[in-house]
Amino acid sequence: MAALSVLAIAVASGKAGYVFLSGGKLQDWGITVQAVRSGNELVGFVQGLINELRPDVVVTEDCTVSTCRKGDKAKALIRSLAKLASHNGVLDVDVPRPRTYQSKYEEAEALVTTYPEVAGHLPVRKRRIFDFEPRSMVLFEAIALAQEVINGPPKRVAAAMG
């Protein structure tokens, strides 16, 4: 399944991150703060990514599972991205957010070993309880979502195909 081109989008409070993998290689990535002000802005931003990158699959977080920790606004934004993918004839796969590490920071460090191109986005230090989460953490969330589809069971993509 590594031959698929995958656009994964993660939405967090006041930010969104995306990664584009083709043939298992990280081709493009980014973080936006301005596009998450409204659903229309985020949909427009992602529509531009779909037009430019032409992915086979768009991956978003499954917000229907009990383990989803997103707020109502983030969930609404994620649902709008799923609709956008289906309107573009792109396969939309929603996956539960993988939680295989003790913390997001350990996950980010592990992902950097696989994708060293994003090492510059790794937070310098772990967040203290009263600090805001670093903006770049949403990028690692998007990578984790993409890996769930690329490395996960093929039945997930097959189920999305109907």
Rank of each mutant, 00 (worst) to 15 (best):
M1K: 09
A2R: 13
L4D: 12
V6I: 15
A8N: 00
A12F: 01
S13R: 15
S13G: 01
G17K: 08
G17T: 09
V19G: 04
F20K: 10
L21A: 08
K25D: 04
Q27V: 10
D28L: 01
V33H: 09
Q34L: 08
S38P: 03
S38E: 02
N40Y: 08
N40G: 13
E41F: 03
L42Y: 07
G44K: 12
G44M: 05
N51R: 15
E52S: 14
E52T: 11
L53N: 07
R54M: 04
T60E: 00
T60M: 05
T60I: 12
T60H: 01
C63L: 02
T64P: 00
V65R: 12
S66G: 01
S66V: 13
T67M: 09
T67F: 02
K70L: 13
K73R: 14
K75P: 00
K75Q: 11
K75L: 02
L77M: 13
I78Q: 01
S80N: 15
S80G: 14
L81H: 06
A82D: 11
L84G: 09
H87G: 10
G89I: 05
L91S: 06
R97S: 06
R99G: 09
S103F: 02
S103D: 14
Y105R: 15
Y105G: 04
E106K: 13
E106Q: 13
E107D: 09
A110P: 05
L111Q: 10
Y115A: 08
P116K: 09
V118H: 01
A119T: 14
A119N: 07
H121V: 05
H121T: 06
K126T: 08
R128Q: 14
R128D: 08
R128N: 12
I129L: 14
I129Y: 11
M137Y: 08
M137E: 08
F140V: 09
A144H: 05
A146N: 04
E148D: 02
E148P: 00
V149E: 00
I150C: 04
I150L: 15
N151L: 13
N151F: 06
G152P: 08
P153H: 14
K155Q: 07
R156S: 08
V157Q: 03
A159H: 11
A159N: 13
A159C: 01
